[in-house]
């Protein structure tokens, strides 16, 4: 009896160990390539370099490094609009999504997130604006990309910080994408704008001295690599490689290259965003 239970115990241990040293799904190994898709309008995460037309960005570099460590896989990149990213994952057009997408509870119905970058919405204004602190924006027109989670974040912040203090609420003005929002800021249609904190250093570099950040990111969140819920094997092996990248500094190097060293995570988290 004991010898049987010992054998069973050893077998379980062996199974457990092999599960932890996760395996790449067979189709990907066979294909020798990852199918990934991005919404390439989101500098510095993923975008087309205006000079060379090449697909570049923090996500591109991270994915490339991951693919190398997953056994020298190639990556077949495709591009889709932001709203198509999740359907692309569900229909298996993409193996996983690494495209500046925020980890959100509403998205976790059919997917899991491996969070790899700290982010959060941040207010910014034109350099000559009179607003000095975020509270100055109560009652003003603030714009952001309507397809993101930021409109909800602005409303929440406005309720907690403006209306609670007896000030008028922020007026939210929708925009199609971050370029459209910055255009509206320049024309004066809006008084301030909100973008993910990871995109602001790039925007400021593009037009030096034009914009000024106001306050800190007013909500904390994470960008996550998105996996299908049933795709546990792939998710675990990617998490493993990412942990290794953080440990040996290559992760930080990539982030620093894009000016986002401050947004690093200490270790990859799963579904860690607060809402």
């Amino acid at each position: 009896m004991t010898r049987l239970s010992l054998l069973l115990g050893l077998a379980a241990l062996a199974a457990g160990t092999s599960a932890r040293a996760a395996e790449l799904p067979a189709e990907i190994k066979q294909a020798g390539a990852l199918k990934l898709t991005v919404n390439s309008t989101y500098a510095p995460m993923e975008y087309r370099d205006p000079a060379t037309s090449e697909l570049v960005g923090l996500d591109i570099d991270l994915a490339g490094e991951l693919a190398k460590r997953l056994g020298g896989l190639k990556i077949t990149w495709s591009e889709t609009p932001f709203a198509e990213l999740i359907p692309s994952l569900q229909t298996k057009r993409a193996d996983f999504i690494i495209s500046g997408i925020s980890d959100r509870a509403s998205r976790r119905e059919t997917a899991d997130f491996v969070d790899y970058l700290v982010t959060g919405p941040q207010f910014f204004v034109l350099a000559e604006s009179e607003a000095k602190a975020a509270i100055d924006l109560c009652g003003k027109k603030v714009g952001t990309t309507r397809s993101t989670s930021f409109p909800v974040e602005i409303e929440k912040w406005s309720k907690q910080n403006c209306e609670a203090a007896g000030k008028p609420a922020i007026q939210y003005v929708p925009g199609e994408n971050s370029i459209d929002v910055r255009n509206q800021l320049k024309q004066g249609r809006i008084d301030a704008a909100v973008q993910g904190s990871e995109t602001l250093p790039y925007a400021q570099a593009l037009e030096a001295g034009k914009y000024r950040i106001v306050g800190e990111p007013f909500a904390k969140g994470y960008q996550g690599i998105m996996f299908r819920k049933d795709d546990t094997a792939l998710r675990e092996v990617v998490m493993e490689k990412l942990t290794a990248m953080i440990a040996d500094g290559s992760y930080k190097a990539i982030l620093d290259k894009w000016g986002l060293g401050a947004n690093a995570v200490a270790t990859p988290l799963m579904n860690a965003a607060p809402q």
Partner: peptide, 20 residues
């Protein structure tokens, strides 16, 4: 250009619930 016609409003809904 943010005119609230039916596609725009449908988009706002699926931006929130991913049901494209």
């Amino acid at each position: 250009i943010q005119y609230p016609e039916v596609l725009h409003n449908a988009e706002n809904i699926y931006y929130a619930n991913s049901r494209v």
